[in-house]
């Protein structure tokens, strides 16, 4: 008796419910889809440290039992972490960084296997098997004349029913549903960061020259950190921009000199050397490199070599004038004659 009462009560509420429902569901869908899409499209900038950690988690620690470099404190893992971080700061691409490790440790340093047919099979096998399971189960489920997974033939159960139009329209509905499902899965894959076609690229609104100007300005007013970030932004677009590489390297090495951190000096040096590897006629780079050798690394011989190349490239006078004392210091400490262009 109480049963019936509660049922009528439910019916009343459910009719109110239905009105509310018609009004609220579109909003709910909009909110959910909107917020997920917004979050997905919102550009995310990974800091170098975050990028380094994500790379570390993809590499096996060679001295451990199946741990990733990220999770290990073994000596070699610490070294690999440092190398990855430096490579990230040098703006090398993910695949460049990982490939350089695989070149000396072998392909099995990757924790997600790739690079051989054996590795590809490890992805293909589960995918195919899951596909088979889904086909098998959805086939038996959607085509209701099949008894579930017991292999009863269609005709045993079909009886005299003939296919009606509604069944055809239902089939269309299934096709629609599966297309939507595939779409959702694809979107999920993208959201998970898989390399599917259509992957979003974050680009900046400024042109490279504009960015370089901004960076040079930042450097000139003493905003070193800002300048380094802007140079990096240039380099994410074009990793072989020699000007950005040179200037960033110089700023980083200067930073290292100030904070007495040899790693930064070495990193700055590496960046400048990388710039030189794209073209040996970069006078500015040779000048910076010479100064680093002279003042930070105390190797006047190497410094003088760099200065000689610098002078041979007919640099603008203001550049020579700015670094005159260092160049003279390098030559005199070696007892070599001071080149005529300096006098």
């Amino acid at each position: 008796m109480t049963k019936i009462e509660s049922d009528t009560e439910q019916e009343n509420t459910s009719s109110n419910h239905a009105k509310l429902s018609r009004f609220l569901w579109p909003i709910i869908f909009l909110a959910l889809i909107g917020s997920v899409t917004y979050a997905y499209l919102k550009p995310t900038v990974m800091t170098p440290a975050q990028r380094a950690i994500s790379l570390e988690s993809q590499v096996k620690c060679p001295a451990c039992e199946g741990q990733s470099v990220e999770n290990s404190t073994a000596a070699i893992a610490v070294s690999i972490k440092a190398k990855i971080y430096q490579d990230v700061l040098k703006n090398e691409s993910d695949s460049q960084i990982l490939n350089s490790l695989a070149a000396t440790y072998g392909q099995d340093i990757y924790l997600s296997p790739h690079g051989s047919s054996y590795a590809d099979l490890s992805w293909i096998i589960p995918t195919v098997l899951i596909f088979l399971i889904v086909m098998f189960l959805s086939g038996t489920l959607l085509n209701r004349k099949y008894n579930f997974i017991s292999f009863v033939k269609k005709k045993d159960l079909q009886g005299s029913e003939s296919k009606s139009k509604s069944q055809h329209s239902k089939k269309l509905l299934y096709i629609g549903f599966s297309l939507v499902a595939i779409g959702i899965l694809y979107f999920l894959g993208l959201a998970l960061g898989l390399n599917l076609p259509g992957k979003r690229n974050t680009g900046s609104q400024f042109s490279q020259t504009q960015l370089l100007e901004i960076a040079n300005f930042q450097a000139s007013v003493g905003d070193t950190a800002g300048a380094i970030t802007t140079y990096k932004e240039v380099l994410t677009e074009n990793s072989s921009n020699t000007e950005a590489l040179t200037e960033e390297g110089w700023l980083i090495s200067q930073n290292g000199t100030k904070t007495h951190n040899k790693n930064y000096v070495a990193l700055g040096q590496a960046l400048i050397e990388k710039a030189l590897s794209y073209g040996n006629d970069n006078a500015q780079a040779h000048l910076y490199l010479g100064t680093i050798y002279l003042l930070d690394l105390h190797q006047p011989t190497l410094a003088a070599d760099q200065y000689k190349i610098f002078l041979s490239l007919n640099p603008p006078q203001n550049l020579i004038a700015a670094s005159k004392p260092e160049i003279i210091q390098a030559f005199t400490s070696l007892g070599e004659p001071i080149p005529s262009s300096l006098r």
């Binding site: 060679p62 001295a63 073994a74 000596a75 070699i76 610490v78 070294s79 690999i80 440092a82 190398k83 490790l101 000396t104 440790y105 072998g106």
Partner: peptide, 13 residues
């Protein structure tokens, strides 16, 4: 010191 030679040669331990 930095372990860079070890990495160049693929040394684990």
């Amino acid at each position: 010191q930095s372990g860079s030679i070890a990495i160049k040669y693929g040394v684990s331990e």
